[in-house]
Design a protein around this nucleic acid. Structure first.
Lengths: 255, 255
DNA sequence: AAACTTCTTATTGCATGCAATTTGGCTGCA
DNA sequence: TGCAGCCAAATTGCATGCAATAAGAAGTTT
């Protein structure tokens, strides 16, 4: 449901997309209980598809269920985000290792080569087209998953990257606000190229290490963004971060 | 829902447990479409909680949604199971590494020490109590997750081990049917001990490697079980394995 | 004034009815 | 005999009503 545009359930799809957007935009503060009836009215759907949507978002990790029933907006610490990125690194490292081990001929690398080439030309220009870069970056990561050829691993990666700040290009927009963003992109692009090289030479251990280190670049960006308000705002889902020092965050009343 | 005994939703809980049990028992052949109405009658619940239960089981991986709506029983290949075990190894390896890195004092290792001690005494007896061994083994793996202290990683591990044949003790019962089961248990127990040693000495890299290799023991058991009908029967969810050479597996009619 | 008890209200979980869509079969035609 | 189109039946997605439970407020007591 979250990936395929299932036009079979329009109401459910509408509810998931709208609610996810609202959650990521920080429309509901973390820790707040979301009531079905009010949400149903707000989103313009009935309670039945809404409840399904709440379940989907719970699987994604954006909501938590209360023991007494009902849902609460999740709250994430900086450590949670760091762990989520580390986890993605581990999983993409495994994907890279499998890609090297399960090598299916030179042609299989074409999509990844094209993504790298696209990012090469994009990073060469002075004013980078971030949207296009994000698209190419995601093609790269998709190609990696394809090469790993493991439905199980893909499932795990899908769940790990469902959290917005853990996705491969979560911090690309935030980079725009950082002074060293040009340098970071150069490094990331070199890692892309090295990863492609490692896979094409079937150097599985090197491929795994590279992919892990590539994810740690996102962790560096996270650290940088945490001390830069403008950069943090550009990270999707930043509103779900636990605020540094509020006294009474709970007890807020939701719509 | 799948973990906490939420007595708040008795119907949903009933549906999940019953349906999961039936699926694992092979009551519905893989590839068969499960119809809501018939299932609701079979399980004694209404369609609303049943639909929620279907969603839960889909998230666990036991069901797949059809593009046209409705659910199908998942089918797994031997490669899928091998990958699921490999994935668990990667994740537990990460848990072991984090446990070593995040060392929280000697007392934190007490639960793991006790689990190892319990398995030591259990494996010492000639006629091993498999149920007790499984319980201790799961205490060990739970302790590992606790030591990792990462909710994100725990979530990934929960999903990875939700598939029955990927859980840490999936093949313990199958081992009983294997000739070399005594030797395998000795090896596994040594790995448990080494892992504990590595964590207690904060040898993170060694801990990760050991946990990965420990999971590969399950892969060996899988290979052995695949050529041993009696052993395979003892593996939960074995009925969802793609049969070696059926001509017309689909088109079966479900209840 | 604080805490416990009781009661009212609001919210969730469940059941079921209805409409739209799909599925499967059947007839007719090549 | 095989295939295309059509029709009937079944199935899913959605909306809503109802009952049980939880949250909150008010009142009372210590």
């Amino acid at each position: 449901m979250t990936e395929q545009d299932d036009a079979r359930s329009p109401q459910l799809l509408r509810a998931v997309l709208q609610l996810r957007a609202k959650l990521l935009a920080g429309e509901f503060p973390p820790g707040v209980r979301v009531a079905e009836l009010t949400l149903a009215a707000l989103l313009g759907v009935s309670r039945t598809p809404l409840r399904l949507a709440l379940g989907v978002l719970e699987h994604e990790g954006l909501l938590r269920t209360l023991p007494s029933g009902g849902f609460v907006v999740s709250e994430f610490t900086a450590a949670d985000i760091a762990d989520a990125i580390e986890l993605r690194g581990v999983l993409e490292g495994t994907a890279a290792r499998l890609a090297a081990e399960r090598w299916a001929g030179p042609d299989s690398l074409t999509p990844m080569r094209e993504a790298v080439a696209a990012m090469d030309t994009l990073t060469a220009t002075p004013d980078i087209d971030f949207a296009a870069y994000v698209a190419a970056n995601e093609r790269f990561h998709t190609a990696l998953q394809t090469l790993a050829a493991s439905p199980m691993l893909n499932r795990a990666l899908a769940q790990a990257t469902a959290l917005p700040f853990a996705s491969p290009s979560a911090f690309v927009h935030a980079q725009a606000e950082l002074a060293e963003h040009q340098r970071i992109l150069v490094i990331a692009q070199d890692q892309h190229r090295c990863l492609l090289d490692a896979i094409s030479h079937r150097e599985s251990s090197r491929a795994e290490s590279l992919a892990r280190e590539h994810a740690r670049l996102a962790r560096r960006n996270l650290d940088a963004a945490l001390s830069n308000r403008a950069a943090l705002e550009a990270v999707p889902g930043a509103a779900l971060l636990r605020s540094p020092k509020p006294k009474e965050r709970r007890h807020a009343r939701s719509a």
